[in-house]
Each structure stands twice: as C-alpha cells, then as structure tokens.
C-alpha cells in the first residue's frame, strides 16, 4: 500500500490516471474499511493539501464550491450561509466537530450514500458536479452522477473537483431538515431539503429532495400545484403527501419502512416551511434543525 501526498491538482489527476484512489478526510474511507465495506485501496493519493480544491468562488456561471471544502467551512462561509443555506444546515449536522474539520463536500457527494446530508440540498439548488481528468472536464447533474447506494457514474480516473451551483433568483430561500435520534455522530433517519422562490408571498418555484428514503437522493415530482399558492397548511400538506407517496424507503436497524414513509412527509413540509420563511427574509439560524427545535433535543 502507498500514500502519495499531492500538492497540486495535476499531481492528483496523474495519480488517478495511474490507478490511485483519492483520500481527503478519510472519514468514510478509513472507517468503512474497518467496518468491512471494502479494503483500503492499494494506492492512495491525499488531496487535502491541494489549495485549488478548497476554495469557494462566486462567478458568472454560478458559485463553485471546491470538492475539498470541509463541512466546518461550509457551515460558516458567508456565501454558503447566505445564498445556499440548506447546504450550511446539512454541513452543520454532519458527525462532530472532528468529522466536520476533515470531512469534505466532495467526499460526501462521491461516497454516494443515500443518507448523505449535503446531497438533497445540492439537488434542490440544481448543483452539478465538476469531474476532471488530465484531459477533460465535464459537468454532471447529480441525478446522473448517483446510480445506486455507494455508486456513481464517475470513471475511476475522474476526480470530483467542485460542485457548481447556479445563482438563485431574488426572494429565494433553502433549508435542510433531518430526523435524528441524537444530535451528534448521527446519520439521517430521513431528511428533506427544499428551495423556494417567492413572489410577494406566493410560491414562484419549489424544489424538494429527500434523503435516506431511496437508493439515491430522491427528487420530489409533481410540485406544480404549489406554484401560485401561498405557503400555508394546504400547500404544506400537499408537499407531505407527495413526499410520503414517492418515498421508497427500506427497513433497517435505524427505522422501519413505515416510520420512514410517515416521517419523510413531516420533514419535507418542515423544509418547505423553513425555506419559504428564509425566502421571505426571516433569519433562521444554521442548522435549522436547532432553530426550529426539529430533531433530537439536548
């Protein structure tokens, strides 16, 4: 087994071309290897010192969040907190301070867990993953990237270098709400993200995505009836119903299929409510779970 510490993106891409696998914080890879999810790769290339992967840049094409940006940065970065709040909500719920210090958004996305916390926020914000090799760069929609639990459509020699998020319209807000049994080192029982744009209190656009209720992050379809309506009990009930109907959860040691299906509706309607309140100019602190008293209490 070898470990190469990369100092530049070219180092990483050359390493991948030669069969090495990337490691950032190792919070999934190292723990997973010990839990029998698969041996550590023979050749690792550490990507955590590559500066160009760890930046957040606002440009004409949208905001580019480097894949090496840690959860600790995501939950406090002003651009993320102000414009893509659901991502900050999610990052603030990941693991513990120690996990958030080294765990990265690229690792979360490319690990491909259906329970990943940053996944649903990225989907509702219409993010794309930037995948690079030595020769090529492509942008992939996340629903084409995730093909199953722990599986992506990325080639072995491709590195996720960034998540690219389009600028959101005026009067937009987003939120991520997670059902949890405890506040730390928790994995989503279920979770929901929403991005809402309002026009004078009326819903102009609505996107909702669900965590841990399908083999991959699930986009809720059929939200058109919400457009032109206010955010009230009726619209929130519609969201809850659609989310519960479309969810395809499993039963495992964390929750039964039936409980997950019930709760995903509750989480989805809370996410829409919180996103709409933010879109309307209300400040709800990050993570919104704590601000609203959702999830486990201390």
């Amino acid at each position: 087994m070898t470990m190469t510490i990369a100092n530049s993106l070219d180092d990483v891409l050359s390493g991948l071309a030669n069969g090495a696998r990337p490691i950032a914080g190792g919070t999934d890879l190292v723990v997973g290897s010990r839990q029998g999810k698969g041996a550590l790769p023979d050749h690792l290339i550490a990507i955590d010192r590559v500066h160009e992967l760890a930046t957040i840049d606002v440009g004409d094409a949208g905001t580019r969040i480097g894949s090496g940006v840690t959860h600790a940065t995501l939950m406090t970065n002003p651009t993320v907190v102000d414009s893509f709040t659901a991502i900050a909500d999610a990052a603030a719920l990941v693991g513990s301070p120690a996990t958030r210090n080294v765990g990265t958004i690229g690792g979360n996305v490319m690990n491909g867990s259906p329970a990943m916390d940053t996944g649903a926020p990225l989907v509702v914000l219409n993010a794309r993953a930037e995948l690079r090799t030595l020769e090529s760069t492509r942008l992939v929609h996340l629903d084409e990237l995730w093909v199953g639990p722990g599986r992506t459509s990325a080639q072995k020699n491709e590195l996720c270098t960034a998540l690219v998020i389009p600028q959101q319209p005026e009067s937009s807000g987003s939120a991520y709400v997670r059902l949890e049994y405890r506040r730390t080192m928790e994995i989503a029982i279920v979770g929901a993200a929403a991005a809402i744009t309002l026009d004078d209190g009326i819903i102009r656009s609505a996107h909702v995505a669900l965590t841990a209720v399908a083999p991959t992050i699930l986009t809720v379809e059929g939200l058109a009836p919400l457009i032109g309506k206010p955010v009230d009990e009726t619209t929130l009930a519609t969201v809850a119903e659609l989310a519960s109907e479309q969810a395809a959860p499993i039963s495992d040691l964390r929750a039964s299929e039936r409980y997950r299906r019930q709760m995903i509706g509750v989480m989805a309607s809370r996410a829409v409510d919180a996103a709409a309140r933010r879109a309307g100019g209300e400040t709800l602190s990050v993570p919104v779970n704590r601000a609203l008293g959702v999830g486990a209490q201390s």
């Binding site: 470990m3 490691i23 914080g25 190792g26 919070t27 190292v30 723990v31 010990r34 839990q35 690792l44 600790a72 693991g95 513990s96 301070p97 120690a98 996990t99 210090n101 080294v102 080192m185």
Partner: peptide, 22 residues
C-alpha cells in the same frame, strides 16, 4: 470507530479522530 472521541488529537490546531486518520 470515530464515535467516542477518546482518540482526539489536534492536527494543525483542529481536533480530529486519530483512530480514523491515516
């Protein structure tokens, strides 16, 4: 297993779980 924090050390001043860091 990255759950209990007994292995906490600082890496460049920030806490990490050393049991799960190569």
């Amino acid at each position: 297993d990255c759950e209990c924090g007994a292995c906490m050390v600082l890496l460049d001043g920030r806490p990490i779980n050393s049991c799960s860091y190569l």
